[in-house]
C-alpha cells in the first residue's frame, strides 16, 4: 500500500502521520501543497494535523483551496482513500469531501489531552481493527473541533452508519458527540482526535495504532 501525506505551511503532525503509516508497513511519500499532482499509484492521501496557513480566515479554508487539494478531491472522486486528522478533518469539510463544519470549541478553550472515544462503526478500512462500542483513549489537540451539521445531515450520518468515532465525554460541544465521520463511500475519514499520537509505546498509549494496521491489512488482503 502506498500513501501520500500532504504538507502545508503550518502542518505539524505530518511526520507523525507518516511515521504511524510507515510503522504499519505502508510506503509513504510527502507531498508539498503547491505540487499539482499526487505521486502515481497512491492508494491513500493523508491530510495531517497542524495549523495550515496559520488558521487564517477559517481553519483549513486556505489549505482546501491550495493546488494539491484539487488533486486530493479528484483522488477521492475516483474512489481513493483519504484520511484527515484534526486540521486535516477541517480541510476535508472545507473541500466538501465530508459534510458539516468545525466550529470553535463550546468552552472556547484550546483542549490538549487524551480523551475516551467510542468506536461507532467498524465498517471502514480505518476502523476494522476495533470492535463496535470499544472505548479507546486518543489525544485531542484543537481549538476548533466542535462538529456541526444540519439536522438532516446528522440524521443521514447516523442512518448510514457514517459516524466513525464518538466522544465518550464530549469535550468540545460537537453535535451528537461526533469525533470522526466517513464519506458516503466510506473511503474518506475525517477525525479530530490524533490516532498517530497513540500509535507507539513511547506515546503512552497505542489505542490509535489499529487505524493504521487496519488500513495496511485491508490493502494486504486485497
Amino acid at each position: 500500500m502506498r500513501a501520500a501525506v500532504i504538507v502545508f505551511p503550518g502542518s505539524n503532525c505530518d511526520r507523525d502521520l507518516a511515521v504511524a503509516l510507515q510503522n504499519a508497513g505502508i510506503q509513504v511519500e510527502m507531498v508539498w501543497h503547491k505540487d499539482t499532482a499526487l505521486p502515481k499509484g497512491i492508494d491513500l492521501v493523508g491530510i495531517p494535523g497542524g495549523f495550515s496557513f496559520g488558521d487564517y480566515l477559517r481553519c483549513g479554508a486556505i489549505a482546501a483551496n491550495s493546488p494539491i487539494c484539487t488533486e486530493v478531491t479528484a483522488h477521492a472522486d475516483r474512489g481513493g482513500y483519504v484520511l484527515g486528522v484534526c486540521n486535516g478533518f477541517q480541510v476535508l469539510t472545507e473541500t466538501g469531501l465530508l459534510p458539516g463544519a468545525l466550529l470553535r470549541n463550546a468552552g472556547l478553550k484550546y483542549i490538549c489531552r487524551t480523551v475516551p472515544l467510542i468506536v461507532a462503526t467498524t465498517d471502514s478500512v480505518y476502523t476494522r481493527g476495533y470492535t463496535v462500542g470499544q472505548q479507546i483513549g486518543i489525544p485531542i489537540a484543537h481549538h476548533d473541533g466542535n462538529y456541526t451539521a444540519s439536522d438532516e445531515v446528522l440524521a443521514q450520518l447516523a442512518s448510514e452508519d457514517r459516524i466513525a468515532f464518538r466522544y465518550a465525554e464530549n469535550p468540545n460541544g460537537s453535535a451528537a458527540d461526533i469525533a470522526g465521520v466517513l464519506s458516503a463511500n466510506r473511503r474518506v475519514l475525517g477525525m479530530m482526535p490524533h490516532p498517530e499520537r497513540a500509535a507507539d509505546e513511547g506515546h503512552g498509549g497505542t489505542d490509535g495504532k489499529a487505524v493504521f494496521t487496519s488500513l495496511a491489512n485491508a490493502f494486504a488482503a486485497a
Binding site: R15, Q22, N23, M30, W32
Partner: peptide, 10 residues
C-alpha cells in the same frame, strides 16, 4: 526510522 525523502528539502 528513516523518514521519506522530501522532508525539509523543498
Amino acid at each position: 526510522m528513516r523518514l521519506p525523502e522530501p522532508f525539509g528539502r523543498h
